[in-house]
Design a protein around this nucleic acid. Structure first.
Length: 340
DNA sequence: TTTTGTTTAGCTCTTA
DNA sequence: TAAGAGCTAAACAAAA
């Protein structure tokens, strides 16, 4: 029997989870991001079942948005005032449903806790990993061009305005592919950290930038150095073209084609690591790191509200070439760029 | 005040 | 059988 279409469930409860419904709504939107109210609206329009008991399922849906790493929050642009943020799918969550069907999820999408723990020295690095894939020079050129376009447009759109001087000083390197991918140099002594690990809490961090650097763009990587493929994936996603794993050809074409969302920032929601990287919730305490107290691995992954966090200067600042290679190969979902 | 967002907890169901 | 996924309720905080 053919499965009913999405609009034909009438008053029956559709077989989709809230995650699937939310992903559906976001995917259907032009900009691949929606405010909460529009997610509600989409679901109620498509599935009459959800026109009732709104309080119940909307609470569940909000819970899912917050709880699942596959959803990220995007702050509103200054020219789009309103309540709440926009919600989007995480760049690497694009393939969490089997065969592109919203009916079945492959596996829960989780950010890379192993890497987070390795970065904090709580897990030994895993040397037994496969090598990542090489980005062609064409891809690098394309990525470089897109990146420049992105940075320029974001600057013009005023994303980088109204930042405190201390925030600007945090980032010393120009925002270029070379600086992102190449082995890093030691930061100057005035810099508390060498890479866009934002000193700002929560969503303020999404606007943390300096001169040519868009921390927005780097935030999905939690201030860590992305692999080439991650970077390209993130870049492509920024322009609304990337959807999880793609074939090499699709990848190539997605970079070649023209994109129409030049000013859309790529955000990330605060995670255990970013939370742990922040010394306090209050902006006036950015420069007053608290001692790191890790009670357990679990507590690190899911820090409580009042738990102490590590100071920025205790975090690894520079990856060696070996570490970078290890890190690059520790990303199977990012390095699979083969035809299905 | 309402909406949005976060977190915790407890439950059921499915899967390995 | 344990672990993971999903659903629901609820408390609470922050923002508009």
């Amino acid at each position: 029997m053919p499965r009913p279409g999405r609009n034909t469930y009438n008053d029956q409860k559709p077989p989709y989870s809230y995650i699937a419904l939310t992903a559906m709504a976001i995917s259907a939107s032009r900009e691949k991001m929606l405010p909460l109210s529009d997610i509600y609206k989409f679901i109620m329009e498509k599935f009459p079942f959800y026109r009732q008991n709104t309080q119940r399922w909307q609470n569940s849906l909000r819970h899912n948005l917050s709880f699942n790493d596959c959803f990220i929050k995007i702050p509103r642009r200054p020219d789009r005032p309103g309540k709440g943020s926009y919600w989007a799918l995480h760049p690497f969550a694009g393939d969490m449903f089997e065969n592109g069907s919203f009916l079945r999820r492959r596996k829960r999408f989780k950010l890379h806790q192993q890497r987070q723990l390795q970065q904090l020295g709580l897990l030994p690095p895993d040397n037994n990993l496969k090598q990542g894939y090489e980005m062609t020079s064409f891809m690098q050129d394309e990525a470089r061009m897109r990146l420049q376009q992105f940075a320029a447009n974001a600057t013009n759109a005023g994303y980088f305005n109204n930042l405190s001087q201390s925030t600007r000083q945090t980032y010393k390197q120009p925002f270029t592919i070379e600086n992102i991918i190449a082995p890093e140099t030691k930061p100057s002594s005035t810099s508390s950290t060498s890479f866009p690990v934002s000193p700002l809490p929560g969503f303020a961090s999404q606007f943390a930038v300096t001169q040519n650097i868009s921390a927005n763009f780097m935030l999905p990587f939690h201030g860590l150095r992305p692999t080439e493929s991650e970077l390209l994936s993130s870049l492509a996603n920024t322009y609304g073209q990337m959807n999880g794993r793609v074939s090499a050809l699709e990848y190539y074409n997605s970079l070649k084609s023209s994109f129409h969302h030049p000013t859309l920032p790529l955000p990330i929601k605060p995670t255990a690591l970013s939370a742990a990287a922040l010394s306090s919730k209050s902006p006036e305490n950015f420069d007053k790191p608290k001692p790191l107290i890790v009670h357990s691995v679990d507590s690190l992954l899911k820090p409580s509200k009042d738990e102490h966090s590590p100071p920025l200067n205790k975090r690894p600042e520079v990856l060696s070439v070996e570490e970078l290679h290890r890190y690059n190969s520790d990303r199977p979902e990012a390095m699979v760029v083969s035809a299905r």
